[in-house]
Structures are given as structure tokens and as C-alpha cells.
Design a binder for these strands. Structure first.
Length: 503
RNA sequence: GCGGGCGUAGCUUAGCUGGUAGAGCGCCACCUUGCCAAGGUGGAGGUCGUGAGUUCGAAUCUCAUCGCCCGCUCCA
């Protein structure tokens, strides 16, 4: 990990590199951007795919006990009722700009005060049993203060959440009694809402999934019935999820649209076995992180204290990463009991049980859930790889990416571009390598410059074709991290790349 | 959401008290170049985040808005 006195400037450098070299752009930048959303450029998309491919390969393809799934982003709204997301996330708020007080907007009621049909003001108060009575008193006071004569219309109290925009400025703050200092009501529910079909009424409401896990639970029976699998087994999914975060922060660490890699690993319900599975998954996941260059020196484990666990969770351990802005959660590995399946079984009325042949009994399995963010992994990989070192007195910026995830595996360079025979030979090698790997052909600038360009985007191999190559077919293979060079045959080159990159 | 700071070319930035924009690096082309950001010549690229306002005149002053950073708040 790069050393830097100033944590902020280190993060700034990384963000700058990501933009400068085409890893990550702020989305819709030409329109001024929008907070919490990002676009991945030509190199970013390669790195991202490599991370996802590595995960899928190791967690699904190489395992007998895990199968894949790709469920829809928009699911039946009842899924989110059953999972608890609809209820547990709704929290509309309103702030008084003057007194700095914050209220639940659905607890703040107001009424327009009208005398003989003429609007003379507005009263507001917090929800209570006697609020109608209190509001009428307040309205009377207002009428007296304004010295208005006439018959007061009946007061219609309504929650601030239902106020039309034209009323916001009229409603007085309960703290100051003066209108105009309240902000519009704000929904703090983290789920993005949308509409399905032509009608935009409540019956058409739907949500963008805030996690991929529920798609797995909802398909538990489908997979079980078709997959020829038995407990213990896992279902894995990679996909986008959306959360309307109040404060997106730290570059792509907390964003509003992100991608998850989740496994629900179903186990027998016995009390004494879940801990073993839980620990096993923590170790499995850490080994996987090491395979993409995130070793124990970068990682930590944070065990959630019992009192902070959700009521259905038995344990949750985070695998953390030491980011420049602090040690933060990368992956959460939770032991969730059978809460989710039970909820969906209850809400849908469909049995979500597994018949265990060995035990001759039916049960709703419990689950271990390793849940990882693609984007967080991306950021961790970049942060861990970002290095500045010195080559002959010159500072060099290099991404020491694990070859497995590096967006470009090798740069192929003809030593000089004005020698047709060198160009042709190098081009031929490039065409051969690109069949297997993402490689880059670069002819412009001095050879040292081309090496450095590749260093900055984390390309592990530099391959230079020179005049000797024309004679004996050997090339110079230059190592990104050590800058050491060696003379190799084409065959040796290929096997060196295979060995470092893997599959 | 609140408070503070910030926004000039791809990047880093100069531009003091208003007179309609420069530099370095990078990039592109050509030349040169026998292995670690060499050199030469030429070139593209900015309505100074955006929108209003004040002014004869705004990158510079005012306001709003968007975005970024820090702290709080909120929240899995």
C-alpha cells in the first residue's frame, strides 16, 4: 500500500488516476453529474469484469455445492413487504432551517385557517390525541391576533407528508411558530420506487431491489426443484442493487447504484452446525481475496456485537479493508437463521421446505450469507495496488494489480515504429496473444515511456520486439513490479503469462 | 439534511483591488530514438461547473443551483 502523509491527498490521487486513465467517471458529467452514481470507463469495465469473473469461477464454477442465478431487478412488491424492507425503511423527515429541529414529517400535522372561505394563515403541531382541539385553539388565537371578523371554517388537519408543494411555505415551524423555515418533506426510505405498466397509481408501485439476496430466497424452491442439489448448498448471484443513500461518500465506496456478489448458503437447522459453516465461509472468502491481491495485511475481521445484530441474525462478521479513509466493510458474512425463507413462506403461502433424505424429515434450512460489493472490491483492489516508487531517481506511479484482475495483461511494443519488419513481427505477436488475453499494442513514444504508461494502469507484462527477435524469435519480457527484464522465447512467454494470470 | 472549504484545458494550476484567459505535464501528427516518463517541429483542446443579477465591461462582485472534499447528522 502506498504511503502518504496526507490521507485525503492519497485518495484524491487515486480518484484522479481512475478518471485520468479511464477507470471511473462520475456519471452524466457533462450535465453536472449526479451524486452517488458512477460510470466505468474502458479500463474500469475490464477490471470490474475480471473481479466478477474471478468470483464466479471460484464460488460457482469450481464448487460442487453452489449454483448460479440471475433474478430480475424488479420483483413483485410483496417480496419487499415480506423481507421487511418496505416497513423498516420508511422514515419521512422534515427539518426546520431556523431552529435546526428535525421532525418526522408524518408526525407533523397542519391545517390552513380560513375565515369565511378566506385563508388567513396556517397552524401546525405534532401528532397527539388532542391535536384537533389544540389546533382549533391555535386557529382562534391566530384569528384574534389578525383581528379578523367572521365565521371560521372547519379545520382540516393533515400530515405534512401530504402537503401540496404550494403549502410548504405556509406551514409554521412548531419550534419558532413562523412559517417558511421548514424544508419540504423528505422520504428517507432507501428503496427506489418506480411504476410498472401504464398506470402510475399505488397499485403499480414497484421497487428497484436494494439487495440481490431476496431474488435468491424467492427462487429457493425453483432451484431446489430443478437443480438436483441437496442441503447444504448455495445459490450465488451477481447483480445491480439500488439504495437511495442519504449521504453517498468516499468515491464509489457508498453509492446509490452498485453491484453485489451474494451467496445464500443453505444449511441444516441444527444449532450446533452453523458456527462451523460460518467460520468456513469467512476463511473461504479471505482466501479468495488473497487470490486477487487483497492479502491479510490489507484485511481485517470485525465481529458484530450481539446487541447490535438484527433480531433474526445469529452472527455477522465483516471482512474489512484498510482504505485510505479508514478501515471499512468490504464483505458481510451473516448467519441469518431461516428468517427470510420463513417470511416468504408465510407471505406467499408456498412451502419453502427441503426434504432431507438422510434424515427423513422436512425443514426450512438456515442460511449463511456472504455478501460482497463489486464496487467496494474494485476500490479496495485499486487502493491496495496504488504505489509510488523510485526508478533511477524518478518517481513512478504503478498499480501493482494482481495479474488475475489487471485490465490489460500485457503491452506489446515494437522497439521502433519506423522499421516495418519490427512492426510486423510485433503486430503478429499481438494478434496471437489477443486471442486469449486483453493485450495492448503501443508504438508511440520511447520504449521507457511505453513501459511507464503500462505501469500506471497496472499491466503486469511488457513485451518488446527488437532486432534479435527477427533473428531468433525471442523477446524482452519486462516485469512491472521489479522492472527487471529477461530474454524469453515465445513459448516461455506464454507459459510465464499463464502461470501468473491463471486461467 | 446542517456547518465549513472548493470548482479555470485530460491532469496540476497562474490570473492582486472587475478590462472578455496563460503555463507545465499529458494527448495527436511528423522527424529523431537499440530497452525505463530523452530531444525537435507542428497541432487539437477552455463560452473559467451551470444559470441568473450588478456593471459600459465579470474567471474576478451578488444570489441561486449542481458537483467534489471535510466534519456532524442519518442509515445498514
Amino acid at each position: 500500500m502506498a504511503k502518504n502523509d496526507n490521507k485525503h491527498s492519497l485518495m484524491d490521487e487515486i480518484v484522479g488516476l481512475c478518471k485520468r486513465r479511464g477507470f471511473i467517471f462520475q456519471t452524466s458529467e457533462i450535465y453536472g453529474g449526479i451524486n452517488g452514481f458512477f460510470d466505468y470507463g474502458p479500463l474500469g469495465v475490464e477490471l470490474r469484469r475480471n473481479i466478477k469473473d474471478a468470483w464466479w469461477k471460484d464460488m460457482v464454477q469450481m464448487r460442487d455445492d453452489v449454483v448460479g442465478l440471475d433474478s430480475a431487478i424488479i420483483m413483485h412488491p410483496d417480496v419487499w413487504k415480506a423481507s421487511g424492507h418496505v416497513d423498516s425503511f420508511t422514515d419521512p423527515m422534515v427539518d426546520c432551517k431556523e431552529s435546526k429541529m428535525r421532525y418526522r414529517a408524518d408526525h407533523l400535522f397542519y391545517a390552513l385557517v380560513k375565515v369565511d372561505g378566506q385563508e388567513i394563515g396556517c397552524v401546525s403541531l405534532l401528532e397527539s390525541e388532542r391535536m384537533q382541539e389544540d389546533a382549533e385553539k391555535m386557529a382562534d388565537d391566530l384569528k384574534r391576533k389578525m383581528a379578523v371578523q367572521g365565521e371560521m371554517d372547519a379545520l382540516h388537519l393533515q400530515p405534512y407528508t401530504e402537503a401540496p408543494e404550494s403549502d410548504w411555505s405556509k406551514v409554521p415551524s412548531p419550534a419558532t411558530g413562523k412559517p417558511g423555515s421548514l424544508t419540504p418533506p423528505r422520504e428517507f426510505n432507501m428503496m427506489f420506487k418506480t411504476h410498472v405498466g401504464a398506470l402510475q397509481d399505488a397499485s403499480a408501485a414497484a421497487y428497484l431491489r436494494p439487495e440481490t439476496a431476496q431474488g435468491i430466497f424467492a427462487n429457493f424452491k425453483n432451484v431446489l426443484d430443478t437443480g438436483r442439489i441437496k442441503v447444504p448448498f448455495g445459490i450465488a448471484q451477481i447483480g445491480k442493487a439500488f439504495r437511495n443513500e442519504i449521504t453517498p461518500r468516499n468515491f464509489i465506496f457508498r453509492s446509490r447504484e452498485f453491484e453485489q456478489m451474494e451467496i445464500e448458503y443453505f444449511i441444516q437447522p441444527d444449532e450446533e452446525i452453523w458456527e462451523g459453516h460460518h467460520r468456513e465461509w469467512i476463511d473461504t472468502r479471505k482466501a479468495w481475496f488473497a487470490s486477487i491481491g487483497l492479502t491479510d495485511e490489507h484485511l481485517g475481521e470485525e465481529v458484530h456485537p450481539r446487541e447490535k445484530l438484527a433480531h433474526y441474525a445469529r452472527a455477522c462478521t465483516d471482512i474489512t479493508f484498510k482504505f485510505p479513509f479508514g478501515e471499512q466493510e468490504l464483505e458481510g458474512i451473516a448467519a441469518r437463521g431461516n428468517y427470510d425463507l420463513m417470511q416468504h413462506q408465510g407471505a406467499s403461502g408456498k412451502p419453502l421446505e427441503f426434504f432431507d433424505e438422510a434424515r427423513k424429515e422436512k425443514y426450512v434450512p438456515h442460511v449463511i450469507e456472504p455478501s460482497l460489493g463489486v464496487d467496494r472490491t474494485f476500490l479496495a483492489v485499486i487502493c491496495a495496488a496504488y504505489t509510488k516508487d523510485e526508478i533511477d531517481g524518478e518517481t513512478r506511479t504503478v498499480l501493482k494489480l494482481h495479474p488475475r484482475v489487471a485490465p490489460v495483461k500485457a503491452g506489446v511494443f515494437p522497439l521502433m515504429k519506423n522499421k516495418p519488419e519490427l512492426m510486423e513481427k510485433a503486430r503478429g505477436l499481438y494478434e496471437k496473444l489477443r486471442l486469449r488475453w486483453n493485450v495492448f499494442f503501443d508504438v508511440s513514444g520511447a520504449i521507457g515511456r511505453r513501459y511507464r504508461r503500462m505501469d500506471e494502469i497496472g499491466t503486469p507484462f511488457g513485451i518488446t520486439v527488437d532486432f534479435d527477435s527477427l533473428e531468433d524469435g525471442t523477446v524482452t519480457l519486462r516485469d512491472r513490479d521489479t522492472t527487471k527484464q529477461e530474454r524469453v522465447t515465445e513459448k516461455e512467454l506464454i507459459s510465464a503469462m499463464e502461470e501468473k494470470i491463471g486461467w
